[in-house]
Design a protein around this nucleic acid. Sequence first.
DNA 1: ATGGTGGAAGGTCCA
Length: 261
Amino acid sequence: MRIATWNINSVRLRLPLVLKLLGEAKPDILCLQETKCPDAAFPEADFVAAGYPHCVYRGEKGYNGVAMLSRLPLHQPHHLLWAGKDDCRHIAATLDSGITIHNFYIPAGGDIPDATTNPKFAHKLQFLDELATWSKTHAAAQKAVLVGDLNIAPREDDVWSHKQLLKVVSHTPIEVDALNRVMAAGQWHDAVRANIPDGKLYSWWSYRAQDWNAADRGRRLDHIWTTPPLREWAVSAEIMREVRGWERPSDHAPVLVEFKF
DNA sequence: ATGGTGGAAGGTCCA
């Protein structure tokens, strides 16, 4: 089974790219973030026609939005409220095997890494704090996969320059510590780094570079984790960097993990 | 130190 995650930055604008990815990478489940699409306008019929008959999605106009496209039946679709909002940053569903997939879009956090002056950063930290609390009681013993745009690059080799990004939201110590607390609380296992342990690895490159590929100032913001019962089942991982070079791309590349189940 | 781009809007906000 192959599970992929991709921040698509408008599922309607990039519908042809999603269909191309489904055709080329053939994931069994593709989790999307930033669909920016109300549910009534979600292009479900296109995904059904492409061989993904089981779709769950939660969107709103303009911002946020998460979805899962699946070849396999998805049961008990649901979501939880985070940081006191109901803003389409989480959706979950369970496979026949009893494995639950959680798809998250964690707040980006704004520009200033200070929770006292920047409400967006405070929101991000509150979301992470609640995710840690929830992970402690709901994750470790379960068969679960957590994927998504977590908007944090935790390791030094998850960013192009650790030193230059220490004060840049997505790689500040306060965020990295918060994400590490989530991982510890749920005993979450990083299935991507477990399979690609060494070297620089990115899943996002800014639109603001003249040549994103040549500059290569990326960050690994998108993640696929498992709980301990599934950790040995994740046998390979890939970040599809070439997709960032497709026409009118998302600024994120898809991340894919293959499981032996 | 600054500004750079892209999406959904139809203002600006968000990333």
